[in-house]
Design a protein around this nucleic acid. Structure first.
Lengths: 208, 208
DNA sequence: TCGTGCTTTTACCATTTGGTAAAAAAGTGG
DNA sequence: CCACTTTTTTACCAAATGGTAAAAGCACGA
């Protein structure tokens, strides 16, 4: 009686629940990343997941809850490369490793990249709070680290935040604006050349 | 009789038509850039423009035509900075001037930037053809110019297309992901610092 | 001033869409 | 095999949305 009868916050998610929630979230990632939140419909998610619409609403309270669940669930994965920057490492190597890991994520997880891009473009209506509580502290810390490296003469001094912005922008560009990149590269996969280009860019920017 | 009775393709747009079409397009730019094509509604555009919904449909055949009209009308403005690159100029100055003009557009015309970003994110369903016929030739030409500068020893050699991608990404980032930038900069306007950062970035990347 | 054609409003519609109620159909522990 | 719970389906709905028909207003030259 005291447990949420619905498949919500309870304590013991059954095997069926685990499997179906996963199916729904994967289908929703497809649909949301392709059409954006408002452009996506529950019917599309239903068809892509192989479940009926009411069945989906048995597992999630509504369309918005699916979207928020996706966003929150992916936030950690998304920020992992930044967390992996080692303050004890060699500064230039750490930054370049971060760039390459971000670019690799752009290639491996383009749906996730577009999901976030859509959300931010719309003004982050659903993860605004997450940006403040999760992203901001991490960025503040990382920017400070980068600038301390600069002050110590181990990197050319740069504005840490704007460096981070530029790394996000240049790497995620290949996922978010893939339609344009495809046209301009005649359908060739640009990630290999992008990797070389970005390596050069940030090496020249930062190497002492 | 032979002219499209509707305010469409005729030959002599009246003063009223000019004014109202402008109103509609401006309102639509607000709404589309904020919510994306599918997230925007005719009612929102109607309210923002001060016209009734049927009145809007008197001037445009449908929601999609408004969107396409906006996209096509803005394409030229959007590409002007790239067209302004002077093959006879000093290479580094020309590139840096391009970067600064793009960044300035990001600050002055964020709605336009988001409109395009939304469209490309969704796979460019409405301007795919325009990308091929207008954007691609210009980018091909500009990339070739940049690489010829590199080959002539007037710039450090770089992949022209990926350089262009990086300039788009880094400058438009401030408009498209403004919600995130605002959070991470505590609401400060980042364009001044961005200008300095990007100047340094591309100067170090390209100066011989 | 009057008529003609451009512009705007008033009423509607059909479809789509997020969501619900309740019954049917599995599962599952005893 | 049975009672009880979880899962799925069937049948709906109200609101939102893109769009239309046709009448009413309006501008402006003859």
């Amino acid at each position: 009686m005291e447990d949420g009868t619905q498949a919500a916050g309870g304590a013991k998610p059954s095997r069926i629940q685990l499997r179906n929630r996963k199916r729904i979230l994967d289908a929703a990632l497809d649909v949301f990343s392709m059409h954006g939140f408002r452009g996506a419909t529950l019917d599309q998610i239903a068809e892509a997941s192989g479940l009926s619409k009411p069945n989906i609403l048995y597992y999630f309270a509504g369309k918005e809850e699916i979207h928020v669940t996706l966003l929150n669930g992916l936030m950690d994965t998304w920020l992992d490369p930044m967390r992996a920057i080692d303050p004890a490492g060699e500064p230039l190597d750490e930054i370049l490793r971060y760039v390459h890991r971000k670019l690799e994520m752009s290639r491996a997880l383009p749906r996730e990249s577009r999901l976030f891009a859509n959300e931010i473009l719309q003004g982050a209506p659903m993860i605004g709070a997450g940006l403040v509580s999760v992203l901001k502290p991490l960025v503040d810390e990382t920017a400070a680290l980068i600038e301390s490296w600069g002050a110590a003469g181990r990197l050319k001094p740069v504005d840490g935040r704007h460096l981070i912005f530029s790394i996000w922008a240049t790497t995620q560009h290949y996922a978010d604006f893939d339609a344009q990149v495809q046209v301009l590269l005649d359908g060739r996969d640009g990630h290999e050349d992008a990797s070389v280009f970005l390596d050069t860019l940030y090496r020249r920017m930062l190497a002492v």
